[in-house]
């Protein structure tokens, strides 16, 4: 039964934090940023079958309006410095998903001279997605974990318990 006609003046009660987090987790804009074969799976995840759009996720072409960077693929030392620059340009609050073995720890190429052994050596990571490469289902699972994490954040209450003034 639709509520639209039965309760046209309907109001919902919720906590402000929960409401804010609900809006934030429902519109995570991720940066258009792919490094290697994992990026192909990331594109598939954005495609019609896995369909990231249903989470309100859309790729953005610049880090300055992005909430999330999905590090998808082998991170070379040369790219690691640039990845840090991109991360620094993103506005807070920002999140990092490390996708696949290479971004997690260097993976297959860990002993190579040119490869950074894990993106967490450069930027802080929120969710690690295992796999080589992870299937779209696995990345979706990782992004739902990130949504869980976002929905548990508290922005209006300080860690010491006092309400924020600003």
């Amino acid at each position: 039964m639709s509520l639209i006609n039965t309760a046209p003046e309907m109001a919902l009660t919720t906590k402000v934090d929960d409401f804010l987090n609900w809006t934030r987790k429902s519109s995570i804009w991720y940066m258009m940023f792919g490094l290697a074969c994992c990026a192909i799976e990331m594109m598939q995840t954005g495609g019609p079958r896995a369909d990231l759009d249903r989470f309100g996720m859309a790729p953005r072409a610049t880090p300055r309006v992005s909430d999330l960077i999905i590090v998808s693929g082998t991170l070379t030392l040369k790219m690691a410095l640039r990845t840090k620059v991109l991360y620094d340009q993103m506005p807070d609050p920002k999140y990092v998903v490390s996708m696949g073995s290479c971004a997690n720890c260097g993976g297959l190429f860990q002993l190579a001279y040119s490869v950074c052994d894990g993106v967490d050596k450069v930027i802080p990571v929120d969710v690690y997605v295992p796999g080589c490469p992870p299937r779209p289902e696995a990345l979706t699972e990782g992004l739902m974990k990130l949504q869980e994490k976002i929905s548990q954040e508290r922005w209006l209450v300080r860690k010491d318990g006092a309400a924020a003034t600003a």
């Binding site: 001279y113 950074c116 894990g118 050596k121």
Partner: peptide, 20 residues
Amino acid sequence: HPLRKDFVEPEEYHGISTSR
């Protein structure tokens, strides 16, 4: 030059440690 047989990988690059 990394493909020389006597090349030794540096411990770190711009503060990024190269081992895990």
